[in-house]
Design a protein around this nucleic acid. Structure first.
Lengths: 210, 210
DNA sequence: GTAATAGTGTCTTTCAGACAGTATTCA
DNA sequence: TGAATACTGTCTGAAAGACACTATTAC
C-alpha cells in the first residue's frame, strides 16, 4: 500500500474491530416490536442481531448476513443510523458498532428458541448499548411514517385507508384523526376501483401506493 | 481478550482502518461555504480535513484533532452524518470513513496556503467521496435551520430579527417571507429590551436565543 | 329495521402570506 | 422633509379538525 500524506502507511494506524448491530422492527398487536436474540449458551443475555465486518464487506451486506445467520431473517432495506464508539462499550476490546434499522413484516420472522419479539415499551435489559440503538431505530421509523403511506411496505397491497391508518397509529404509538389522515394520504395513493368488506359496514375502497 | 459467542476472539476478525472526514461549513457572502485542505506536496488535490482514528479514541475527539491539525480550527460540535464504506473508496486499502459536519463562524478560520473556503455551489473536484459528504452536511444543516433560530450559534448575541433572517436565508439558499419568519422565530427568542441602529431607518429590537 | 363502517360536504379555527398603516431613524 | 427600515394590525386563502349527513353492508 502507498504511504499517505503524513508519510505513514495504512498498517501503521491502529484499527478497531467494526461491528454492525441491527434493530429489526415490526408491528404486532397494535405497536412496534423489536427482534432480540441470545447466544446458544446464554439463557439470559438478550441483544440485537449483529456481527463483525468481514474483509472488504459492505455494511449493508454484513447486516443482511447477520440477520440471516442470527435470526433467520432475510433483511430488506437496512438503514444506517449511528456509529457507537464508546471505547468501553464492549468488554472484549475496542469495537465500533454501526447501528442499523430494518423494518420487516412479522410473517417473515421465524420461530426460534433463541429469538424473541418484544414490544419496544417492554424491552428487557439488553447487552452493550443496544437499548439506545432501538431508540434511534424507533425515532427513524416514526419520522418516516409521518409523511408517506407505509414507507416500509408492511401492508400487503391493495389495502383500505382504515388498514393504513391503523398501521400508522401502531407505528407512531398514537391515534390519528381519520379525516386528516385520509386527506393527507389520498394524494400519495392510487385508487384501484375495487372494494373490500371488513366485517360489518360499507365495504372500503382499495388503494395502492401511488 | 475473551472469546465471543462464536468462540472466536476479537483479533481473529479482519479490521478496517477507520477515518473521520469532516465538512466544516460556514456562511460567507450570503451562502454556505466549505473548508477544503490539501496536503503539503500536492498542489491540486483538495479534500475535506480528516484523520485516522487513534487507539481507543472517540470519533468526535478524532474530528477535533483533525480540524486542529489540518486546518487550525478549534471545532465546536461535530455531528455524525454517515459511514462511507465502499471497499474501493480509498486506493491505499480498506478504509471506512465516518463523515461529520461542523458549523463554525468564519472568523475562526485561519488563513493558510493549504486551506481554502469554497461556496458549496462551486466546489472543485474533491478526493475520495468527499463531495458526497458535503452534500450530506448541507442537507443536515439546512434541516436544522428550518425550525430553530441559528442552531449552530453563528450569530453573535444579541441580534436583530433581520440579521437572523439574512443568516437563515444564506444557510437555506432561498429567501424567506419576513412576516412568517418573524412569527415563527419570536416564540424561540427572548427580547432584551435594547435596540440597535443598522444604517438608516428605525432601530431594530435586539433578541437572544430563548 | 338497527348497528356499524365508509365516504362526502361544510363549518370553524388556525396559520401563512399579503399588505396597509404607524413608528423611528438618517440624510 | 423624504427615504428607509422596524413593527403592528388586519384581511384572505388554505388546511386541519370537528361534525353532520349519506351510502352500504351485516345482523
Amino acid at each position: 500500500m502507498r504511504p499517505d500524506s503524513t508519510g505513514r502507511r495504512l498498517e501503521d494506524y491502529p484499527r478497531p474491530s467494526v461491528a454492525v448491530d441491527t434493530a429489526v422492527l415490526t408491528v404486532v398487536e397494535g405497536g412496534l416490536a423489536a427482534v432480540l436474540v441470545r447466544a446458544q449458551g446464554d439463557r439470559a443475555e438478550w441483544r440485537l442481531p449483529g456481527t463483525f465486518l468481514h474483509e472488504g464487506e459492505r455494511l449493508r451486506d454484513a447486516v443482511m448476513r447477520s440477520l440471516r445467520a442470527k435470526a433467520g431473517i432475510s433483511g430488506l432495506r437496512p438503514r444506517q443510523l449511528h456509529v457507537f464508539d464508546s471505547p468501553a462499550r464492549d468488554d472484549r476490546g475496542w469495537v465500533l458498532s454501526v447501528a442499523h434499522v430494518d423494518v420487516v413484516r412479522v410473517e417473515r420472522l421465524p420461530a426460534s428458541e433463541n429469538l424473541r419479539l418484544t414490544p419496544i415499551s417492554r424491552l428487557p435489559a439488553l447487552k452493550y448499548d443496544h437499548r439506545e440503538i432501538v431508540g434511534f431505530a424507533v425515532d427513524a421509523v416514526r419520522a418516516d411514517y409521518l409523511t408517506a403511506p407505509d414507507p416500509a411496505d408492511l401492508l400487503e397491497s391493495p389495502f383500505t385507508i382504515r388498514q393504513l391508518r391503523l398501521l400508522h397509529e401502531a407505528v407512531l404509538g398514537e391515534s390519528l384523526v381519520p379525516d386528516t389522515f385520509r386527506r393527507a394520504m389520498l394524494p400519495h395513493l392510487r385508487a384501484t376501483g375495487r372494494v373490500r368488506a371488513e366485517g360489518r359496514g360499507r365495504p372500503a375502497e382499495l388503494f395502492e401506493r401511488g
